[in-house]
Design a binder for these strands. Structure first.
Lengths: 148, 148
DNA sequence: CTAATACCTAGTGAATCGGTATGCAAAGAA
DNA sequence: TTCTTTGCATACCGATTCACTAGGTATTAG
């Protein structure tokens, strides 16, 4: 499955924000861009989309920045990608002329809609909290990676 | 979900072939392109991919054409799209630098791999036979669309 | 005031997509 | 054999999208 860089950046950034959610601090785009190794200017555009979708809220000015609009367990990967990855949720256009009645409907019902539904269900079942926890399991400096 | 025209053409063409599978006849690209309303030259390229993936077999020369390589109930939508739709099955590249240990792994495990798996399961569960049957239910000239 | 920050709009090079053009290769028909 | 029908291969093209850059404006804490 192709997932755009924009969507992946959004996911990485919001996961990172989820780990710092309880502090209540604003998080700046530049700090995220540095810790993730992503272009700051591009990440700004990603956050513009996340704000429009009400995944994050913002505060302008000095000491400003972004915060998750809701607790991490209430934000799903679906919301983040929906806001940022266009091709993932693009409408499938018509394929054939109506010389072939029924083919269009069959494809739509049994394939396209079925896939869309499966993807949506999968993404909706994963929260930023889940992802942040999963992330902690995989950091290399966690401490329970040792040898006897 | 974005699904490329190439993949949709492949699906439409193989569904159409499935309805004529029992005759054993070769089916020409030009007849399919006309009945589906698709460019013949482009459809040829699609069939080149389907043949490489052994979804169809071919015979050259006069009275030649293509046939499904196996019975329609043994060919899944997954196979057809796998052969023709690149972006659907594209590998997701790395997103973040390793300044952020664990984020990459969390996204991959809980999101990308999960979605890929859901899509594959869904598509594998739909055969060309299923699609051909579904198609027949939806043709407008079926006869059980009447008014009292 | 000043510095830090979000926010807005336009542009750009590369890649991809959908499609065309052209011709060769093979196999059956005449 | 020769002709016609079909598959097969390659190169090319215009439009669109993608990832990203550039350069500004607006707002707010200190």
């Amino acid at each position: 499955m192709r997932i755009s860089a924009r969507g992946r950046y959004a996911l990485a950034a919001t996961i990172s924000m989820a780990t710092r959610y309880d502090t209540g601090d604003n998080i700046t785009v530049i700090s995220l861009s540095e810790s993730l190794g992503i272009s700051k200017i591009y990440l700004e555009q990603v956050f513009s989309l996340l704000k429009k979708a009400e995944v994050v809220s913002s505060q302008k000015g000095a000491q400003g920045g972004y915060r998750l609009a809701r607790p991490p367990q209430d934000i799903s990967a679906f919301e983040v990608l929906w806001a940022t990855d266009l091709s993932l949720f693009e409408e499938v256009g018509d394929t054939v002329k109506d010389h072939a009645p029924g083919i269009e409907a069959a494809m739509r019902i049994s394939v396209f809609d079925a896939v869309d539904s499966a993807v949506k269900t999968t993404l909706s079942g994963v929260s930023l909290k889940t992802l942040a926890d999963e992330m902690k399991k995989h950091r290399k400096d966690q401490g329970y990676m040792f040898f006897i």
